[in-house]
């Protein structure tokens, strides 16, 4: 039986993040907390970000969702930790490009997130993959306003 097409979506590294999510949990009370849900399907993510000296000091997430949304959250927290806020936002932008199937050319270390590039062939699932990233952007936005 061939699962070629599905294999491009569900790469092993994705399933690994789904099964063993990195940075799952919460942070101290003074961290930023953002709730983001996908009202059409019920996926929900709570992202906790601790930003200090313009750097993402720590990032954790909680929530419920499918393999794509949760693995994306796991990969994201991993890749933005320790990065400058500007760079984290830049990675989010690159991730959006990956989701619309754009070729990207960058020196930034994208960690595991490139494994999600197969999602662009499954338009119905793009919203799953971008949920955590939208939460991160919103968190940064909120912090800048404070």
């Amino acid at each position: 039986m061939s699962f070629d097409n599905l294999d491009s979506l569900y790469r092993q590294v994705i399933m690994d993040h789904y099964k063993n999510p990195r940075n799952r949990g919460s942070l101290e009370d003074d961290a930023l907390t953002i709730d983001m849900n996908n009202p059409t399907c019920g996926d929900r993510i709570q992202l906790h970000l601790s930003i200090e000296d313009n750097h993402v000091k720590d990032a954790k997430f909680e929530g419920e969702g499918c393999s794509i949304s949760l693995s994306s959250a796991s990969m994201m927290t991993q890749v933005i930790k320790g990065k400058e806020v500007e760079e984290a936002l830049k990675i989010s932008e690159l991730f959006s490009d990956i989701m619309i199937g754009k070729e990207i050319d960058t020196d930034i270390d994208l960690g595991d997130i490139e494994a999600l590039q197969g999602v662009c062939k499954f338009p119905a699932r793009i919203k799953c993959a971008t949920l955590a990233w939208k939460a991160m952007e919103k968190a940064v936005d909120q912090q800048e306003q404070d």
Binding site: C66, I68, R125
Partner: peptide, 12 residues
């Protein structure tokens, strides 16, 4: 298996 994932496999 999350129902999204089930539905994606079925859609394929």
């Amino acid at each position: 298996v999350h129902p999204h994932d089930t539905a994606t496999v079925l859609d394929a």
